[in-house]
Design a binder for these strands. Structure first.
Length: 1083
RNA sequence: GGGCGGUUAGCUCAGCUGGUUAGAGCGCACGCCUGAUAAGCGUGAGGUCGGUGGUUCAAGUCCACUACCGCCCA
């Protein structure tokens, strides 16, 4: 065996690539098919590379390698995502600036400096890891999102959107830590949930009868209820946050739900969800009588008096309570419809204070209602007698006021989970803050239509996770009150009346009146840049950009694209423009499934808004890696599998192979070391074995592989392998064209399995003892071609082993061949060589041999002992022809003297008669069971004769006669009596188990051959060394030697075989058949 | 609470538009082979296809409900 230490082999290949700059050369490989565009979704280099990065990078690597071999050029520009919260949090921890409300200039400078350093904390690990796993990526020219050039391109994109009116300022509900008014991230909140008791209050909102919707009037009338008779009619609204009630602008009902008009002895008439009636009875301990039913949808626009009507005037939002809009609709304080309202808790009518909830704010947008800020952003009440109190402390007082006003129906408590801020201990305040938005919702249709043009893997993401998300698209909030990010290029005048969006450094320089080319565009430096225009001083807005915009901008910013409103390059940026144009849109991108709302979306949104086209044509959306038990890998659980030890132990190829073929790419994958080991032993091991076999004998025989016999002159067995190999090229090419790595891998695996266990196994002798030179040369040629083809086809999957094989198989004998397998051209299918008849026939042979081996096993007679006869059959005429054609192969493989191929209707065979259900079901439907029963009754020989003659089968069915077409009946051969047989699906092999003296002696001779061969090996002889044999034998062994001695000599390369006292190396055997003792000496 | 995906042998996974006895690899047990040999091959055991109900001549596959796991969102 040659080198089998895969990790060591991989290191050698890496050295080879490095020394000979193979990656750089692949960049210059001729590319008649043009550019295949790949985008690297930028990882962050502050963390360590983990196994899921191997997954993504493997899939990112395989298709560019494939396309390069196919004759495309692939630019593999790396990239790093460098801004954002994770970096800031890490640095905050380090610097200890926790929960500070605002940093001063000096502090920001220190902070962003630290961020910049921290970003590449693990860059060395990343560079090493990427190379080691065999991913070719240009890391030297990687784009970096914090570079000034990158930021400038992002500004350019924003400016174009700004000029098109796509950028607006609006409110966004964010989680705040009150008192310090710091925006928190989801992660910071996730840990802070606590069980707490909060108020649960039911409040009456009296309805204004003059605004009753017509649908309500009609329905009440139909149910015999007069509106005027309803006393104190009010909706019953539920909330757990009384402090938000002063900010109430709407009450929401679910349009699909049932609502009841209920009479309460204590307060008059109430409307709330029918589902809640029983609960309220229980809760408030009073008898409630349902007198009418309404649908939620009926109630829209019905106006009510809120519990704190004075607030809206007090805040100056309207002139007077109950004000109308120009179209006659109320400005606020009416019933709105919302799908999110449920009746599982409360009354089924939700109180809407849009300032304090994201869904509520969205509803306010839909209905165009203004906002009432009952608190400020520090959580202090701004209105009512509770003014100045911390919001949670205002509940009691507000409840008292409502009681006095007679609108409180019921006040209780509820235990639920509510988030708190760890560091301050305060409850989280969800609060609407002004924020910058991109109006993506205006492009909902375009976003959706462009998505139709994308090929998603897996398919369901397209209309599922991603499509649904686009359908419900809301505006993209792009501003963050942070420090380390692309600063928003918006400058606002001191009076707040005018905004200027800056689209380039040059533009900013002109506004300021000095050259800013060397200024760091980050905070705090950019904050110092002010200018005067129209007599007003402009300062930058404080926010930075959402990092997802950074990453979504990479198609443009990685080339420092700078264009004007018409998309034409700005002066001096013509070359950048050409680079961009050559690389837009992407043919292929790949990331894990969590990117649907991250990178996939940001790419798609930006390209749709600015170019109205998708940004990528094909996308593989990977499932997550979990541990052996299906749990998420996390450091705290200690179940993380590190990639580098896997590479060191099994090699990167093994890991890659497992990731490609282990399961569908979109599925969640359970990862374990064992599976990598399996991949190594399976595909890689088998391939390597075949290769070793080839090398072992090729080194002895030195066949001339540069002058190979024509395919048509080769034996059938070789032509079969050639056909199979062409079929493989077809399969792998089709699979990779469809971005189906798994399909391609499975085809390769299947081929290598057949190559090893059928072709090599069957043809071994042609390599090691074959005086027929033509035949030997043919075998070498055929096996060599198959290995070379597999090497090339496997190159994108397992680049290391493929390279090693290429160097040894091809480069060693063809110095003019491409220097690396990755610089070679993808194999082309020669369909003339796909002999499908031959493939079908050989398929039947393999099948039947498999069955016969099973039969051998059950018979208990070792393969070594020849048997006189095997009967075989197959379900189709084409396959029977194959069995006849390859009868010799079958005989040899099974060690039987005679192969008898049985056709349809022969006497030795009996059959199982089966209905062809797919055909019969369509034709006869309900009568299928009866037909089935009738068929079972028939004599199978008769049926076989009938079908053999090509006649239909006539059946008596409940007095009716029907005739089944031959194709509607299936026959499966059964094992005949008295044979060791196996059958399956119409294939059958039956061994005649009859031992005679001759066959036994022949079988024993094989034992003797094996004995001598083992001795040769123990002596340390070469396979080609000649020997001399002396022996003593008795019993059956003596007979066997007498009869088959010459064969023994032949097989063991013995020049002589003499009876007498054994001399030299001694080996012996003794059992019930007799005994034998050999002496071997080297000739 | 909503959306999407998953649940098939001890493990990792296939099962196309419904159709005959639900497959593969690994592991396990037993055996074979012995000039690919610290390899190779075969056979066997092992399955209520998460559960319930429905549609159908026929359901792992279609429909409804449901349980559990995962991801995203709220």
């Amino acid at each position: 065996m040659t080198e089998t230490n895969f990790p060591k082999l991989e290191e050698a290949v890496l050295a080879f690539w490095r020394e000979n700059q193979i990656f750089a050369k692949s960049d210059r490989k001729s590319a008649p098919k043009g550019e295949f565009v790949f985008y690297e979704g930028p990882p962050t280099a502050n963390g360590k590379p983990a196994m899921h990065h191997v997954l993504a990078r493997s899939f990112k690597d395989i298709f560019p390698r494939y396309k390069t071999m196919q004759g495309y050029h692939v630019t593999r520009k790396g990239g790093w995502d460098t801004h954002g919260l994770p970096v800031e949090i890490a640095v905050e921890k380090k610097l200890g600036v926790l929960g500070r409300k605002a940093l001063n200039h000096q502090e920001i400078a220190e902070f962003t400096k630290q961020c910049r350093e921290w970003v590449f904390a693990n860059i060395e690990d990343w560079n090493y890891f990427t190379e080691r796993m065999g991913m070719w990526l240009d890391l030297e020219n990687a784009y970096v999102t914090y570079h000034n050039s990158y930021i400038e391109s992002v500004w350019n994109l924003l400016k174009r959107m700004w000029d098109k009116g796509m950028v607006v300022q609006d409110y966004k509900v964010v989680p705040l830590s009150p008192r310090i008014s710091t925006t928190l991230s989801q992660n910071e909140i996730a840990d802070g949930y606590r069980e707490v008791d909060d108020p649960s209050v039911y409040v009456r909102f009296p309805l204004k009868l003059e605004t009753t919707p017509p649908a309500v009037r009609e329905k009440l009338q139909a149910q015999g209820v007069r509106l005027e008779d309803l006393e104190n009619l009010a909706i019953l609204v539920w909330t757990t946050t009384p402090w938000t009630l002063p900010s109430n602008t709407m009450a929401a009902v679910n349009p699909a739900m049932d609502y009841a008009v209920v009479r309460s002895p204590s307060v008059g008439h109430l409307i709330f969800a029918t589902e809640a009636v029983e609960r309220l009875k229980e809760l408030h301990k009073e008898e409630l009588e349902v007198i009418a039913h309404l649908k939620g949808a009926d109630l829209e626009w019905w106006e009510y008096t809120p519990p704190f009507p004075e607030v809206c005037v007090e805040l100056g939002v309207v002139q007077q309570q109950g004000e109308k809009r120009p179209d006659g609709k109320p400005v606020m304080h009416f019933i709105a419809l919302a799908d999110f309202v449920s009746a599982e808790d409360g009354s089924g009518i939700a109180h809407e204070a849009p300032v304090y909830g994201a869904e509520d704010l969205e509803l306010a947008r839909q209905y165009g209602t203004p906002l009432l800020f009952g608190t400020n952003e520090y959580g202090l009440m701004q209105v009512t007698d509770e003014r100045g109190k911390f919001f949670k402390d205002a509940d009691k007082g507000l409840i008292r006021i409502m009681k006095e006003r007679g609108v409180l129906y019921h006040a209780g408590q509820i235990r639920h989970r509510y988030p708190f801020h760890d560091r301050t201990g305060d409850p989280i305040l969800y609060f609407a803050k002004p924020s910058w938005y991109i109006k993506t919702s205006n492009f909902r249709q375009a976003l959706y239509d462009n998505n139709e043009k994308i090929h998603w893997i897996p398919e369901h993401i397209k209309h599922g996770r991603f499509g649904n998300w686009l359908k419900d698209n809301v505006d993209w909030a792009i501003s963050r009150e942070r420090y380390w990010g692309t600063p928003l290029p918006f400058w606002v005048s001191e009076d707040g009346s005018e905004y200027i969006c800056v689209g380039s450094v040059r533009e900013l320089s002109e506004l300021v009146g000095r050259d800013l080319s060397d200024v760091d565009l980050h905070r705090p430096y950019v904050d110092e840049i002010t200018f005067v225009k129209n007599g007003k001083t402009f300062r930058r807005v404080p926010e930075v950009l959402d990092v997802w915009f950074d990453s979504g901008a990479m198609p443009y910013a990685q080339w420092h694209l700078m264009v004007d409103q018409d998309g034409k390059p700005l002066p001096g940026f013509e070359a950048n423009f050409e680079l961009w144009r050559k690389h837009f849109p992407a043919d292929y991108i790949c990331e894990a499934i969590d990117q649907t709302r991250g990178w996939f979306y940001s790419l798609h949104a930006i390209s749709t808004l600015l170019y109205d086209q998708p940004c990528f044509k094909n996308v593989i959306c990977l499932g997550h890696l979990v541990d052996e038990k299906g749990h998420k890998m996390s450091k705290s659980k200690g179940n993380v599998v590190e990639p580098l030890p896997m590479f060191d132990k099994y090699g990167a190829d093994a890991v890659r192979w497992y990731l490609f073929t282990g399961s569908e790419p979109g599925e969640q994958k359970r990862f374990s070391e064992r599976l990598v080991q399996e991949a190594q032993r399976g595909f890689l091991g088998t391939l390597w074995n075949v290769y070793s076999f080839f090398v072992l004998y090729a080194n002895l025989d030195r066949p001339n592989l540069n002058q190979r016999p024509a395919v048509q002159d080769r034996p059938e067995m070789d032509r079969w392998l050639v056909a199979r190999q062409q079929q493989l090229i077809q399969q792998v090419t089709a699979a990779l064209d469809a971005y189906d790595a798994r399909g391609g891998g499975k085809a390769l695996e299947q081929f290598v399995e057949e190559l090893s266990n059928w072709y090599v196994r069957r043809n071994r002798r042609r390599f090691w003892k074959n005086d027929d030179t033509t035949d030997r040369e043919s075998a070498y040629a055929t096996l060599w071609e198959a290995l070379v083809t597999v090497t090339q086809l496997a190159a994108p999957f397992t680049p290391f082993i493929a390279e090693a094989l290429w160097q040894n198989l091809v480069r060693s004998i063809q110095p003019e061949a491409p220097e690396s397998v990755h610089l070679s051209d993808w194999p082309q299918v020669n369909s003339d060589l796909i002999d499908s008849t031959l493939l079908t026939q050989m398929g039947a042979v393999v099948k039947v041999v498999g069955l016969a081996r099973g039969a051998r096993a059950t018979s208990g007679i070792k393969t070594r002992i020849p048997l006189p006869r095997v009967l075989v059959t197959a379900p189709s005429e084409a396959e029977l022809a194959g069995l006849r054609r390859f009868a010799d192969e079958i005989a040899e493989e099974l060690n039987v003297k005679q192969v008898e191929v049985l056709g349809l209707g022969e006497e030795l065979l009996t059959y199982r008669v089966l209905p062809n259900l797919p055909l019969l079901g369509k034709k006869y439907g309900k009568r299928v069971p009866a037909i089935r029963a009738a068929l079972a009754e028939l004599d199978s020989q008769m049926v076989a004769q009938t079908l053999k003659a090509g006649r239909g089968l006539s059946l008596e069915l409940e007095g009716e006669r029907i005739v089944l077409e031959p194709a509607e009946v299936l026959l499966e051969a059964l094992s005949p009596e008295g044979f060791a047989a196996q059958e399956e699906g119409g294939y059958m092999a039956a061994l005649e188990v009859r031992l005679d003296e001759d066959l036994l002696l022949e079988g024993l001779s094989r034992d003797l051959i094996r004995l001598v061969q083992q001795a040769r090996k123990d002596m340390g002889l070469n396979v080609s060394d000649r020997i001399r044999l002396t022996y003593q034998a008795d019993g059956k062994y003596a007979q066997s030697l007498a009869k088959f001695g010459s064969r023994l000599q032949e097989e063991t390369l013995a020049l002589s075989l003499e009876p007498g006292e054994p001399a030299g190396f001694i080996t012996e055997l003794s059992d019930e058949e007799g005994s034998v003792k050999f002496g071997l000496s080297k000739a």
